[in-house]
Design a protein around this nucleic acid. Structure first.
Length: 533
DNA sequence: GTAGGGTTAATA
DNA sequence: TATTAACCCTAC
């Protein structure tokens, strides 16, 4: 199956409310190669959401937040206050819980361990990183303040008592919820949802071409303020459900945009006027690479801040490179679809071939993909359960993750039962199930003796004159390239972040460093073996 | 994609 | 010459 399709499906599932167990099974069978940073971030956020849904945080969540922070930092995305606060609150809760579990001063070994892991480990590393000139956006004065408080709780009974009386879990839950809501909104909907929506609305299909101004205009809900001096922008929630039309009270009345990409909303891409959209071309039919603006702000439905441009200039380089902008010719608007793959973004007011190609590709691939998924992924719920909403609701009450969308959940902290489905383990080494199956299926396979010489490992050096001989000539052996300290540091950091054995994600994450010397994931594995010998 | 054994070349 | 690091190959 096309890697694009896998990514679209995975992103869609991660953004949906399907049970974690299904997602875990999908992750087990999906080829995780080619996962981009946005998808890693989505995976991390889903993991955070799963933990939050359980109303009980583990230190994994700190790891997830650190991963997201690094991804955001590398992509130039600002680290929000909500994220910093969530990190701090979770760190506090993950410490204080042991204080509650072992109130007796003589049995606080677990609390001491937590202090060592979190505050003398993670937080201290941040301090050291800052001291060495590195930027660590999760580091805050509040964090240091809590470090001192928690340290003093080890010997100060009064501080200890105060901490035990605090509801640190609810505070952490609240902070994480705020962070998630904000971040999901800023990321916008998944590509699949955008594609499906645009198909339903006719914006991404050829149907648009056949629609006239009036018909297309009628398809867009008009709610809110007076249209007279306003500009309409379709507003979508984080699940890409249309929330209605937003009329921007500006003086610019040329053309409004139909924006269905939340990330574009977040990253400021509301552009008014053909000439401005097209970068100066008055008929609006010119291709434009990137558009975006963050001049002024308007409040979108659902509380999302919608960056808005209010003057005649277009700021470029505000949006990611790979966006496709397609505008129906007959409607004053531009539809923005994040395809991740279409290369330099284009604004097409006459037609939207690029997005149509993507949607068509998706549609066709999904036909086969669904069959493949059915084969590969075994739904943990029996068919009978799928058919019974009553049983489903019963499961939901038992915490089998049929919870409502996160933003609709109560803020009351309910501790679920112990036997409920735990959160997804982020970056879990793939496929225990398949590995087991493979080992069973191949149990009778003939394996060479360990003492037998590996006759296939003969290779020839680069300069071997026989290397160029046609017809099965031996493969060239690469020149030896010694590992630099930068590479070694990146590898160590990668193993710490992603875990040993996840060489591909590490390679991709530190691609800037490893690509200089052309390292492969096997090289990383071999080097780690050398480092740990 | 990863693990692990084997090969090769550089170095002490 | 022994050791080590880097690279290769194959099974799973």
């Amino acid at each position: 199956m096309d890697n694009d399709i896998w990514r679209w499906i995975l992103e869609y599932l991660l953004r949906s409310s399907v049970p974690d167990l299904i997602i875990k099974n999908v992750l087990n069978v999906l080829p995780l190669s080619g996962i981009d940073s946005r998808l890693w971030k989505t995976l991390a956020l889903r993991s955070i959401q799963s933990e939050a849904a359980m109303a009980s945080f583990t230190e994994n969540l700190l790891e997830y937040l650190e991963v997201v922070e690094e991804i955001d930092r590398r992509n130039g995305v600002a680290i929000t206050e909500a994220m910093k606060e969530a990190y701090c609150a979770v760190a506090v809760d993950c410490s204080v819980r042991y204080l509650e579990a072992c109130p007796d001063k003589n049995t606080r070994g677990l609390f001491d361990d937590a202090i060592n892991r979190i505050w003398r480990g993670r937080v201290r590393q941040m301090v050291e990183a800052m001291a060495s000139g590195k930027r660590c956006h999760l580091f805050t004065a509040e964090l240091i303040g809590w470090k001192d408080i928690l340290e003093s709780a080890r010997w100060d009974a009064e501080v200890c008592g105060r901490l035990m009386n605090m509801n640190t879990r609810k505070n952490a839950l609240d902070k994480v919820r705020v962070y998630l809501k904000e971040t999901w909104a800023s990321m916008g909907p998944s590509f699949l949802e955008v594609a499906i929506f645009s198909e339903e609305k006719g914006l991404g299909s050829s149907r648009v071409d056949k629609m006239g101004d009036a018909e297309l205009a009628a398809s867009i809900p008009n709610e809110g303020c007076d249209k007279g001096d306003s500009e309409s922008v379709l507003v979508f929630d984080q699940m890409n459900r249309c929330k209605g039309t937003l009329y921007c009270p500006t003086n610019i009345t040329e053309e409004a945009l139909v924006v269905s990409d939340g990330s574009a909303l977040h990253n400021a891409a509301i552009c008014m006027g053909k000439a401005q959209v097209a970068g100066g071309n008055q008929d609006g039919e010119q291709l434009v690479e990137r558009v975006g603006s963050s001049v002024g702000r308007i409040q979108a439905l659902g509380g999302t801040d919608l960056p808005q441009r209010t003057n005649g200039t277009i700021q470029k380089d505000k949006l990611p490179l790979k966006h496709n902008y397609a505008a129906p010719s007959t409607r004053r608007g531009v539809k923005i679809i994040d395809t991740e793959e279409v290369g330099p973004a284009t604004v097409c007011s006459k037609n939207h071939d690029a997005s149509n190609i993507q949607v068509e590709k998706l549609r066709k691939s999904l036909m086969s993909s669904s069959l493949e998924l059915r084969v590969l992924v075994k739904d943990p719920l029996p068919d009978a359960l799928h058919k019974s909403n009553i049983v489903r609701s019963e499961l939901a009450t038992k915490g089998v993750n049929h919870e409502p969308p996160f933003e609709n959940q109560s803020t009351i902290v309910n501790i679920p039962e112990q036997n409920t489905c735990r959160s997804i383990v982020l970056y879990q080494p793939i496929n225990d199930i398949l590995r087991k199956q493979t080992s069973v299926n191949c149990s009778n396979a003939q394996r060479p003796s360990l003492m037998e010489r590996n006759s296939t490992a003969h290779t020839y050096e680069w300069d071997d004159p026989f290397n160029d001989l046609p017809g099965g000539s031996p493969k060239k052996r690469r020149r030896k390239m010694r590992w630099s300290s930068e590479e070694e540091d990146a590898l160590r950091a990668g193993v710490k972040k992603f875990g040993k054995g996840n060489w591909k994600p590490i390679l991709r994450f530190y691609g800037e460093i490893f690509s200089k010397t052309g390292r492969t994931e096997v090289d990383l594995k071999d080097k780690w073996r050398n480092l740990t010998r």
